[in-house]
Design a protein around this nucleic acid. Structure first.
Lengths: 253, 253
DNA sequence: TAGTGGTCTAGACCACAGG
DNA sequence: CTGTGGTCTAGACCACTAG
């Protein structure tokens, strides 16, 4: 037992708020995550056992356990029966949840820009109709946008939405991300199926992405559903491969 | 309330095994998953509430809740406070899991084949050394394999492993997937970081994948860790874009 | 043998959605 | 108002790991 011994700076966990709306397990897990990401709790460090932590914080074991499980799911902690709980070694800790639903918008540490190339109603082709769960030929909203960061084009986004979203304006689309607009209307995306692939650019894609006319592009096709399972959005996007990659942290269960 | 009313075929949940090693929540969730995937419980169906299910199965609410949570995490069920739990509408694909390409092909009933193009010890370059957590110049295992399905090349797999795996044989590599070999040695991959991108084929890649010499390829870079956080594998793979795509189901939290 | 996480119980109160 | 899931408690027994 050397550097990877028990570390527990309990000053971090003194004032838990039992009256507010924030769950206790979340307060614990988020503070613990901050302490790990800042290096205050170093890689390889062993945590105290769950019961001891619970006693120290005045929490029951299931509550402590849930807080720890949150970080295990994020890949920050590893639990082994008979051993204990350890901070993962190495600079793992990537913030990205799988490949994100929100990433298109929240990678906005840079200056994201949107240029609307097309915005119209259009009868749904076979594949679009099936994805959205409408009859073929139904008029649906068609969007084509060019997304850029700091003035450099990054992606071409083609989307189809059910007709009830026909009142979305071009101005809204240029100012915000699609999912932000949907959420402001009370529509929350809960589940999405997506396929990631690659192909040659064709048509005007190379020009719009400022790459070779037939150069390689990274593609993503996605169908997104709201909480009730209704299809909200079908999209086919292509990305500049030198500007964008899908990053993922996978945790085995 | 019509077709999406409560459905609960309780014949499925009669003989829970309380003595064996399989957790009760897992028995419940796996049977429920099978019933959903088979269509026996149709999309949109509402489940009974958690307490009623627990009473029916002779289980406590937390146990039932955990079983349901497993399927919520997989994107098969949706829970809404005040409403209930529903089977998701629309098709559901499998979640990206921590498997090797070999296992992916096996589970999709194709015949995977492996040709070992290179298998040697090699001093670790800067990026390899950092990924594996060894000193630059350390001899590590280098693998280059051509993976095919039904005789058609699908991917080129380049991998680096720590020196302790130098006794893996070429015969093993041609007969099984890398992760299967590692697991048979008691090494289990727990966490992996991966980046998915695209680029042109270069060198002999086009020829080995039987595509255009500079055609587009789908790429995946991965660092995988075991339960103790030690880096086990660093890989850089490229895939034939017409033969392979990454499919994902994402669930918002 | 002692300590750990893995599982499970039988209650409780709350926030939110619906009629 | 009732019913739902969201959270929390205070115990319990077990399987696995280490020394």
């Amino acid at each position: 037992m050397a550097a990877d011994d028990v570390v527990w700076p309990d000053e971090l966990f003194t004032d838990l708020d039992r009256t507010g709306p924030v769950p206790l397990y979340f307060q614990v897990s988020s503070r613990l995550e901050a302490a790990i990401r800042s290096g205050e709790i170093p890689p390889g460090a062993r945590l105290e056992n769950e019961i001891a932590i619970g006693h120290r914080l005045g929490l029951s074991r299931p509550t402590v356990r849930r807080a720890i499980q949150e970080l295990v799911d994020k890949g920050l902690l590893v639990r082994r029966r008979g051993i204990g709980t350890q901070v993962v070694q190495g600079q793992v800790t990537r913030q990205v949840e799988l490949t994100s639903l929100y990433e298109d918008l929240q990678s906005s540490h840079q200056e994201p820009g949107t240029k609307v190339l097309a915005h119209e109603m259009r009868p749904a082709a076979e594949d679009v109709a099936q994805a959205l769960g409408v009859a073929p030929g139904t008029d649906v909203v068609y969007l084509r946008r060019q997304r850029s960061t700091d003035g450099v084009p990054v992606a071409l986004l083609e989307n189809y939405l059910p007709p009830e979203f026909s009142d979305i304006t071009t101005e809204q689309l240029e100012a915000r991300g699609l999912y932000q607009i949907l959420r402001a209307r009370g529509v929350t995306i809960r589940i999405a199926n997506q396929k990631i692939g690659a192909r040659r650019a064709h048509g005007d894609e190379g020009e719009l992405l400022d790459i070779d006319r037939t150069g390689p592009v990274l593609t993503m096709e996605r169908v997104a559903f709201d909480g009730s399972g209704r299809a909200i959005e079908f999209g086919h996007h292509c990305y500049r491969p030198d500007m964008y990659k899908f990053e993922t942290t996978l945790v085995a269960k």
